[in-house]
Amino acid sequence: MSANSKVVDINKNREELITFTEEEVETIKRTVASDANTDELKMFLHVAKSYGLDPFNKEIFFWKVKGKPTIMTSRDGYLKIADRHPQYDGLVSDVVRKNDSFKRKSDGIEHEYGTERGDIVGAYALVYRKDRSYPVYVFAPFEEYRADTKVWYKYPSAMILKVAESMALKRSFSVSGLVSREEMDVQQLEEDKESPTKRFKKQKEKEDYIDVKDNAQDDSLSQREKEIKRIVGKSPKLKNDLLNYLEHAKKENDIGEEEKMSINKLDDQQFTQLKSILQTFKRLA
């Protein structure tokens, strides 16, 4: 940040751990939070400044889910908040599998395992604070939190551990106004508790007016479509994020309901934003 730049003061009554110049706020409006209206931008900047998370370093993100503003961080974002707190005294976490010896005690966990471990049961996290006699404890059962996505199938241990750690860190330091991608997966699970037929019908209705050529041969795709296909791969979650963005862009570009929206109809700024969002969500996964 330039020392001569004027700093924008969003909230004078609360300690700010990070500040933004007017120029940086304008950049955030064009990039990280381009979907945000004036009030949503103020909210985003307030949360970022309160918790000291830097959007330019990809520590905090703005995203609209079904028109509702969502401010996201990652498990590492929660860790950064904890590390800064003077009472933070450490994090202990692990994945529990069948055949493990696992017992919770008031002041910690007794967890032992050998070489013959079974399927994942869940994960636990304990966050210690110097000003508390007992740690904050969270156990995340695997079957309750597992999302039906490629990353969960490929890295189930890492994902369930992130869920437990995020929840424990968030609870330990009363973090509000933020969610992690893992928590969004959990929220999506709650929203998707409906019949497979109903889910398929909703997806089909969305794809009927949004053109996503994910199954096409590369030689029939435009350069833009190839770039997005490389990012999304076979991830159902990223494909859904792509569809959500195109649905938003369809309304933003005032395209008629009967006309399809495609990646190729995005303007340059929208296409750059789409790539940035998908790449960010891919890294968070």
Results as ranks from 00 to 15, higher is better:
170 K>E: 12
137 Y>C: 00
147 A>G: 09
254 D>E: 12
256 G>H: 09
92 V>M: 15
2 S>Q: 10
144 E>D: 14
285 A>R: 13
268 D>R: 12
119 D>F: 11
61 F>H: 03
170 K>V: 10
144 E>L: 12
119 D>E: 15
168 A>Q: 10
196 P>Y: 02
178 L>F: 08
69 P>H: 09
222 S>G: 12
78 Y>H: 13
111 H>Q: 07
23 E>T: 15
25 V>M: 05
171 R>K: 15
218 D>H: 05
62 F>E: 01
131 D>S: 03
202 K>Y: 02
264 N>K: 03
212 V>T: 10
180 S>Q: 03
263 I>W: 12
269 Q>D: 13
81 I>N: 07
114 G>F: 06
234 K>A: 14
154 K>Y: 08
135 P>C: 08
56 F>R: 05
172 S>T: 10
224 R>Q: 13
59 E>I: 04
40 E>R: 01
124 Y>D: 08
159 M>L: 08
118 G>M: 02
134 Y>C: 02
248 H>C: 00
206 K>E: 08
179 V>W: 14
74 S>A: 05
43 M>N: 11
182 E>P: 02
133 S>V: 00
85 H>G: 07
280 T>R: 10
274 L>F: 03
75 R>M: 05
86 P>E: 09
65 V>F: 14
274 L>H: 04
224 R>H: 15
104 R>C: 11
84 R>V: 04
151 V>W: 03
264 N>Y: 00
105 K>I: 10
5 S>C: 15
59 E>D: 14
255 I>S: 07
115 T>D: 14
146 R>T: 04
149 T>N: 07
164 A>G: 02
226 K>D: 00
258 E>P: 00
134 Y>W: 11
155 Y>P: 00
202 K>P: 04
222 S>N: 04
17 L>P: 06
30 R>C: 01
35 D>A: 13
148 D>V: 12
149 T>D: 01
219 D>S: 14
199 R>C: 03
5 S>G: 11
204 K>R: 13
51 Y>D: 00
89 D>L: 01
167 M>S: 10
143 E>F: 05
130 K>F: 06
277 I>T: 07
177 G>I: 06
108 G>V: 07
262 S>E: 05
223 Q>P: 00
19 T>L: 06
186 V>N: 00
114 G>E: 10
54 D>T: 00
93 S>W: 06
257 E>H: 13
216 A>W: 13
100 D>F: 03
42 K>S: 07
217 Q>A: 10
62 F>W: 01
146 R>Y: 02
48 A>G: 03
119 D>Q: 12
224 R>Y: 15
47 V>N: 01
110 E>R: 11
178 L>R: 01
282 K>M: 08
144 E>Y: 04
2 S>F: 08
19 T>D: 13
8 V>N: 06
270 Q>A: 03
216 A>R: 07
93 S>K: 07
253 N>K: 15
96 V>R: 01
255 I>P: 07
43 M>C: 11
113 Y>T: 12
240 N>T: 13
206 K>D: 03
175 V>K: 06
160 I>E: 05
100 D>A: 11
